[in-house]
Computed example of a mutant assay.
Amino acid sequence: MTNSRWTQSLLQYGGLLAVLVLLIFIFSVSSENFFQTSTLVTIANQVPDLTFLAVGMTLVLIVGGIDLSVGSLLALSSAVLGVLMAHRGWSIWPSLGVAMLVSGVGGMINGSLSVGFRIPSFIVTLGMLEMARGATKVVTDSQSVYIGSRVEWFGQPLPGILLSPAFLTAVLAVIIGQFVLTRTVFGRYCVAIGTNAEAVRMSGIRSAPYSIAVFGISGLMCGLAGLAQTSRLSTADPNGAIGMELAAIAACVIGGTSLMGGRGSVISSFIGVLIIQVLRTGLAQIGVSDANKQIITGLVIVVAVMLDAVRSHWGKSK
């Protein structure tokens, strides 16, 4: 059993890492400027916001849900952070606490409505996407809020290690998320709910609190993502993070998380984030237009979904 687990982990992570290394090799050959410390450091320090979203999205997908509101909740938390710091004179940590509270409540509302009224999470979170985006514009009066050096430090590389506090915090979130998923009762119940919710119910376990909780966690991750993005841009942008919900879902799917629920890995989703960012950066460096970048990235996502379907079918037929 132990050998089987090791083999499965090796195939899962090894395959993704092989894809990541292959992409780095291809772009290093195609562009003389790609395989440089500055480029790799830039890639690492651009992924924290998407990484936070992918951590929360992985848990949501595992229980059989989906969260289309994460981009808008990110923007809303960023707006709250920006207004409190720039207009109210608050320091970063109390501002972050309020921002995470707002996005966390948004996530809890998503979960409560979806579970309580048995509405597909696709519909509920689509509505939250619009409401949170509208609230963001109300909070900022549809104007960008400049914060500057009071928040920039979180997204800037630290001397010596060249990695930002945002990146290190994102890696910590990945480690904690993977531990919760694989080493706690909460994580095991989440996987069980996504695999067979009816069986969980028949065994006497109430699945509702767990399903609501993962949406709340997703909302909290949006708050951290808002801080990461704001620190990188020095500004809270009411139009920021548009479409990031799709990038978060794509990273999870590329990492092998099933859209049908019951299977996923936070570490794999993180590798999926790195693959997406390497792909974006590499295509930009070799001069691929934005339109063609979208086509190629979309193709990669479709292939990943197809491979997931084939893997699921193969697993059931064994």
Score class of each variant (00 low, 15 high):
234 S>K: 12
245 E>F: 02
240 G>R: 01
241 A>W: 00
240 G>I: 00
244 M>W: 14
224 L>T: 00
233 L>W: 01
244 M>N: 10
217 I>R: 04
216 G>H: 00
228 A>F: 00
218 S>R: 04
227 L>A: 05
226 G>E: 04
241 A>I: 01
239 N>Q: 13
225 A>K: 00
247 A>L: 15
227 L>W: 02
228 A>C: 10
220 L>A: 11
238 P>Y: 01
237 D>E: 14
244 M>I: 10
237 D>F: 02
222 C>W: 02
243 G>P: 08
225 A>V: 09
244 M>F: 14
245 E>S: 04
232 R>E: 09
216 G>C: 11
223 G>R: 00
238 P>H: 10
245 E>H: 03
234 S>G: 11
223 G>M: 08
226 G>S: 09
224 L>Q: 03
244 M>C: 10
237 D>R: 11
243 G>I: 03
241 A>T: 05
225 A>L: 05
220 L>H: 05
230 T>V: 15
233 L>K: 05
241 A>N: 06
227 L>I: 07
239 N>L: 13
247 A>K: 15
232 R>G: 07
227 L>F: 01
222 C>P: 00
231 S>K: 01
244 M>Y: 14
238 P>I: 08
221 M>T: 07
238 P>C: 07
236 A>Y: 04
229 Q>G: 11
226 G>W: 06
240 G>D: 07
221 M>L: 13
235 T>K: 08
239 N>E: 13
230 T>W: 01
245 E>V: 10
228 A>L: 09
243 G>N: 14
234 S>M: 13
232 R>T: 10
231 S>E: 06
219 G>E: 03
237 D>V: 01
247 A>Y: 12
247 A>G: 10
244 M>Q: 13
222 C>E: 07
224 L>E: 03
219 G>P: 02
236 A>C: 10
238 P>Q: 08
248 A>R: 02
230 T>S: 11
219 G>V: 09
218 S>H: 00
248 A>H: 00
221 M>G: 01
248 A>E: 03
225 A>H: 01
230 T>D: 03
